[in-house]
Structures are given as C-alpha cells and as structure tokens.
Design a binder for these strands. Structure first.
Lengths: 147, 147
DNA sequence: CCAAGTTAGATCGAATATCGATATAGTTCC
DNA sequence: GGAACTATATCGATATTCGATCTAACTTGG
C-alpha cells in the first residue's frame, strides 16, 4: 500500500499541474469540476465536499457568477436556497481543461511500453469502483450512477 | 484517453481530500511534499515546480521556518542562495499524511474484488514510469532515480 | 581588477481568499 | 403563531498571492 500510495502521490503532483489554470484559483476550479460531475446543486451541498467553509464558497460563487461561469436559479422547493449550475462558458472551461489533461497524458502514455499502456488503460474501471465505494461510505448508497 | 482521464480526475478529487490538512494550506503542503521527494534544494528550484510565484514562496518558506518544519543552511557554492530542507518535524508531517492516505486507500482497496485489487497494486510501476518520462521531457534526462 | 549584466532572494503595497461570528430570511414542528 | 432549525449572506480580521522593485552576490569580457 505504501508503494502504491507513493506512486499515486508522485503521479498526482504531475497530473495536477498539467493544465495551467486560467485566472481561477484552485477552489474555483474544484467547484467547477464538482458542478460538472454532479450537475446542479445547492451551496450547502458543495460546502460538504469542497475544502473551504461556507462564507468562502459564497464569495467564490459570487465571482464565478460575475465571470459568467455559473448561474443560479431559485430552488422551487425551498425559498432560502438557490440551485447552482454551470453556464455553457463554465462547461467549456471544464471540458477544455479535461481535454488538455487527456492530451498531455496521452502523449506520455504513447511512450510507454505497450504492455504498460494496456494495463494503465484498463485501470479506469477500477478507479471508478473505488470512487463509488468511497461515495457509499459517507454519502448515500447510490447517486454516483447518473452520467 | 478520455475515459482514463476522467476516472483519474474523479479519483483525485477523492484522493486529494483524504487527509484533512493541519494548519497548512495547499501550497505549504505541496512544498513539504516536494522537499521530501527531492531532498534539499534552493528556493528557485521550488519556484520552477510549485504553482506559485517567488514572493509567495518566500513568505510560505518564512512561515514554514517559523513553524519549525523547514530549515535553511547557506549554500556553500553560492553566497546568494540557501539550501532548504525539512526538519524532522517537517518530515513527520509528510510521512503522517502519507500514512493516512495509505491507510484510507487500503481500506477502500480491501473492498474491491480480488482481481481489481491485484490490477491496481500492479499499476504503481507504470505510474512511476510516467513520472519519469515527464521528468525527462522538461528537466534533465535523469535525476529521478535516487531513493 | 573592474564595469556591466545576470541571478537569488527579500521586501513592499495592493488585490484577493479565507475564516469565525453573526445576521437575515425561509421552513418545520408543535 | 412562535421556537427551533436551515440556507445563505455579510462583516471584520488575517493570510495568501502577485507584480514591481531592491539588494547582494555571482559571472564575464576586457
């Protein structure tokens, strides 16, 4: 476990740095990614998973909204809350970053021995299953299935 | 590549968040990790890999030094520079975080089907090779070999 | 050796991010 | 309707970041 953990740590140092961030800080990018993967949700849902407190998230959202990357609509079932969702500009930032990472990772993987390449590509499903397991642990038992 | 990249992104969202940070922010933790993996180096070496500019790194180092996690000694070959290195307190923060991650990852992996577990454990070497390839690309062709 | 250019790192001031505490407004339960 | 709760906003203080600039130390060509 030691060994695998260290390899993942080192790989992440690399992977995280691949795409140079635009004018957005780490928290803002993380919020965009989360909104992209989970779909519209409320501020308090994000507070649970992002690594910042609610006031910081409120001001981050204000900036993202000013920049036209996120929009809010009233939550029909609760007058206190808003539903937050990505605008198309927001979606394109996320997918641009994703595409950059995929491309740069692809360039590295192309230089691996074929056997390694195959093994690595085959690991995606395992990673998904781990994420799912972790989600079941603290969150509700399903929810991670929707595209 | 799409598929693998997305799985890694999702896994990272999880992996990054595993250990709640002490009183140190993301940049400080990243610096500690880098110092731990690369051994003593100069401020300007870190500026090249960390995602912050030199003034921010200088003030981060000042805080880490105040907190007793990093120490500096004069660089014998260059009177302008200092060599930065982890103190034993700094080392133990890094290894504590590493151990936490290993333990939590281990708990998840234990719940995978045996075949998946084996495949995942076998991927460490491939990740190392990718990191090495990326290092050869922009840095000097070797250097990544030391323990 | 010396002047000019370069590099390592520190410092300053402004902008931004974050936090804890608290305020506001909507909701639920009795 | 009123107490308790929840979602989010706001406020003031502290921390982080950056761009610009500064100093000291190194390097080089003569």
């Amino acid at each position: 476990m030691e060994r695998l953990t260290r390899s993942i740590e080192d790989f992440n140092s690399l992977f995280i740095r691949l795409p140079a961030s635009d004018r957005l800080n780490f928290s803002a990018l993380s919020v965009l990614h989360t909104l992209s993967r989970r779909g519209p949700c409320r501020l308090s849902d994000l507070v649970r998973t992002e690594q910042i407190k609610q006031p910081a998230l409120t001001s981050a959202m204000a900036k993202l909204e000013r920049d036209g990357l996120v929009e809010r609509s009233p939550d029909p079932s609760d007058g206190r809350a808003s539903m937050l969702s990505l605008t198309s500009d927001g979606r394109s930032i996320v997918s641009r970053r994703h595409a950059d990472r995929a491309e740069q990772l692809g360039r590295l993987i192309d230089r691996l021995p074929p056997a390694d390449r195959t093994r690595l590509l085959g690991i995606a499903g395992v990673l998904d299953r781990i994420v799912q397991l972790a989600g079941e642990q603290d969150g509700k038992p399903d929810e991670r299935s929707g595209q």
